[in-house]
Amino acid sequence: MLAIYKKELKSYFNSMIGYVFIAFFLVIIGLWFFIQNLLYGLASFEYTLSAISFIFILLTPLITMRLMAEENKQKTDQLLYTAPVTATDIVLGKFLAVLTIFGLVMAITCFYPLIMSIYGEIQFSAAYASILAFWLLGAAYMAMGLFISSLTDSQVVAAVISFVTFLFTVLMDGIAGIFSSDNKTAVIVFSVILVIICILLYRMMHNLTVAIGVGIISEAVLLIAYFLNPTIFDGSVRKVFGWLSVNSRFENFSLGVFDLSAFVYYISFAVLFNFLTVQVIKKKRWS
């Protein structure tokens, strides 16, 4: 794991990507910091961070797109998968490397509340908690980007899919608002999602029986639940879509509220996608 971590970290600084990512991120944070905190004298750094959380959509794909896709393309995956390391080692090494790069950005960001304290009273605990939360928010995005990168051998495809996916997660609250909150809509929406999942399952496993079997069973469970107790579906679409909205979890921090559930959410999100990436690598062996 350490070998892969070191190699990834080095490669970010051998190419321009690491520098570009760090520089661009710092420019954006610096700009917002200057305008909101210094120019308008807003005493809340957490609000500034919340305002720039959209930047993950643009910058995360930049550093995650090449992680696995490039290995697949250069056939260096053959070296990694035939070396005495586990798939978990490979994925974690890579994930921790991007996390470190982003950590450098966050480490520099830690100076901003200090600068603000020169001019007035600052609530340090809220500021630093939000920086930590911002880092974890980034971790969630990066785990997702890593997962998407492992699905393809083209960096461009990885970047575009990551971009679209991230855009969806940000717009998720808006999308959820489109659907009415009655239970019939919920069942229809979930059925459509199940069909999409089954199609994806078939694309990945090339096994029609499994895909259709999973589809029928889950659909049956859905319908039985609906007929037994329709009320549990009330407003459930918004709830489910709300789970996927990564950015909205940051809102509490922007208000200066310490939200432990968001920490747990981000960490589980990152763990889930790292786990999925490991599965993709393992599955490749069996295809």
Binding site: K10, N14, Q74, T82, A83
Partner: peptide, 25 residues
Amino acid sequence: YLPEFPPLYPDMTVKEYLNFVADLK
């Protein structure tokens, strides 16, 4: 294992690459 296409990282020097492989193994 030397696969059909040598699994090399184009942006590394030979020494860096072998160093990485040694760590990996």
